[in-house]
Design a protein around this nucleic acid. Structure first.
Lengths: 113, 113
DNA sequence: TTGCTAAATCGTATTATTCCGATAGGCTCG
DNA sequence: CGAGCCTATCGGAATAATACGATTTAGCAA
């Protein structure tokens, strides 16, 4: 099957428990990195888009934001490098979606403060 | 009494309910601002110090961090401008402490993602 | 192949962060 | 008052972030 299936690109939630520590130098560093990635209105907006649309939108993000395509792409890159989102190539376009594990991690770290 | 009392400078918790919205443009902006303030390891460490020490430490923060006094002061300023901490002048020194309201707000905003 | 669409990357200008040493301001004690 | 401590601010240097247009890369379709 060549799988021309609809825009489903975020499969396994796979909620394994997270065993990493919630404090200590490494956790501090991790929290800082994640927070820094969220520390921009455009990136918050992108994350919001990707969470509300349960499924994953693609370059429609560009249409939603008052920014140039290249700028949005860069913000997506920042979020991806922080591990907060994932980008699956789906034909000519790329389908971005939340990385639930990282979001959970962020929430835990923040809650642990 | 000249009040050489211990470092108590963070009085009223005053847990009023927070009625501000958890999403929307303003919330996005707010979250970005708060996250940006936390987006640096030194500042995470400072917040951690201020939370673990239930009471509020002062310039001892400088001793705990591997940074110059002026640099720490600047990080404290960032946190203060974000509303996450407060600095009460206590004689010759300044007593910093968490602003619980802002921390709660941050947790709510993150949890709401 | 050629052209079209979508996304990433490059080059670049502007602004913001980060860090430090040096300096200034405030308070307390002698 | 003057010395000493604590903190903030200034000035500057190096680096990072932000944004954009232009270009490149990749897939799809005619």
């Amino acid at each position: 099957m060549t799988e021309t299936s609809p825009g489903v690109c975020c499969p396994a939630p796979s909620s394994q428990p997270d065993l990493r520590p919630v404090e200590g130098p490494e956790a501090d560093e991790e929290l800082a990195t994640l927070a820094k990635a969220i520390g921009h209105p455009a990136r918050v907006q992108i994350l919001r888009l990707l969470t509300t649309k349960t499924s994953c939108v693609c370059g429609d993000i560009v249409d939603e934001l008052p920014l140039a395509q290249s700028t949005v792409s860069q913000h997506l890159k920042v979020l991806k490098e922080a591990g907060l989102i994932r980008g699956d190539v789906d034909g000519p376009r790329v389908c971005y979606c939340i990385e639930p594990r990282a979001m959970r991690r962020l929430k835990v770290l923040i809650a642990g403060m």
